[in-house]
Simulated scan of single mutants.
Amino acid sequence: MLVGKMRGMLWQLVAGLLVGLGLSGCHASASETKALPAAIVSAPNTAQTQSGVAVVPDSLRLTPIVPLANVSDSLHQAVQQLRAKLGPEAAELRLEVLERACVGYLTLRQARKISQPGILAVADMDLPSSEKRLWVLDLQKGEVLHRSHVAHGRGSGKLRAHRFSNVMKSACTALGFYRTQDTYGGKHGLSRRLRGLDAGQNDNALRRYVVLHAADYVSRQHLQRHGQAGYSRGCPALPPDQYRAIIRTVGEGGCLYLSGPGLESKWLDAAAAARQLAARGWR
Rank of each mutant, 00 (worst) to 15 (best):
E89M: 10
E89L: 14
E89F: 00
E89W: 02
A90H: 08
A90F: 05
A90P: 08
A90L: 10
A90S: 07
A91W: 00
A91Q: 15
E92M: 10
E92S: 14
E92N: 15
E92Y: 10
E92K: 13
L93W: 08
L93F: 07
L93N: 05
L93I: 05
L93V: 04
R94D: 14
R94E: 11
R94N: 09
R94L: 04
R94P: 06
L95S: 12
L95G: 01
L95I: 14
E96M: 10
E96S: 15
E96P: 07
V97F: 05
V97M: 02
V97W: 06
V97E: 05
L98I: 09
L98E: 09
L98W: 11
L98T: 09
L98N: 13
L98Y: 09
L98F: 08
E99D: 11
E99F: 10
E99P: 11
R100K: 15
R100D: 13
R100P: 12
A101V: 00
C102Q: 02
C102S: 11
C102F: 01
C102H: 04
V103I: 13
V103R: 01
V103K: 06
V103T: 04
V103D: 05
V103S: 06
G104C: 01
G104T: 02
G104A: 05
Y105N: 02
Y105S: 03
Y105G: 00
Y105I: 00
L106E: 09
L106M: 10
L106D: 12
L106C: 13
L106T: 12
T107E: 03
T107C: 04
T107Y: 08
L108Q: 00
L108A: 12
L108F: 01
L108D: 00
L108R: 02
L108V: 03
R109K: 13
R109S: 02
R109H: 00
Q110S: 11
Q110A: 15
Q110L: 11
Q110I: 00
Q110P: 01
A111R: 14
A111M: 02
A111K: 15
A111C: 00
R112A: 15
R112V: 12
R112F: 08
R112L: 13
I114H: 00
S115F: 10
S115I: 04
S115L: 07
S115Y: 01
S115Q: 13
Q116A: 14
Q116I: 07
Q116P: 06
Q116T: 14
P117S: 07
P117M: 04
P117Q: 07
P117H: 06
G118H: 12
G118M: 09
G118N: 12
G118T: 08
G118P: 12
I119Q: 03
I119C: 11
I119W: 09
L120M: 07
A121T: 14
A121H: 07
A121F: 11
A121C: 13
V122C: 09
V122N: 07
V122Q: 10
V122D: 09
V122E: 05
D124W: 04
D124F: 05
D124Q: 04
M125R: 10
M125F: 15
M125A: 14
M125P: 07
M125D: 05
D126V: 01
D126N: 15
L127G: 00
L127Q: 15
L127T: 02
L127C: 06
P128L: 03
P128D: 04
P128M: 02
S129H: 04
S129I: 09
S129P: 05
S129A: 13
S130N: 14
S130E: 13
S130K: 15
S130D: 14
S130P: 07
E131P: 00
E131M: 13
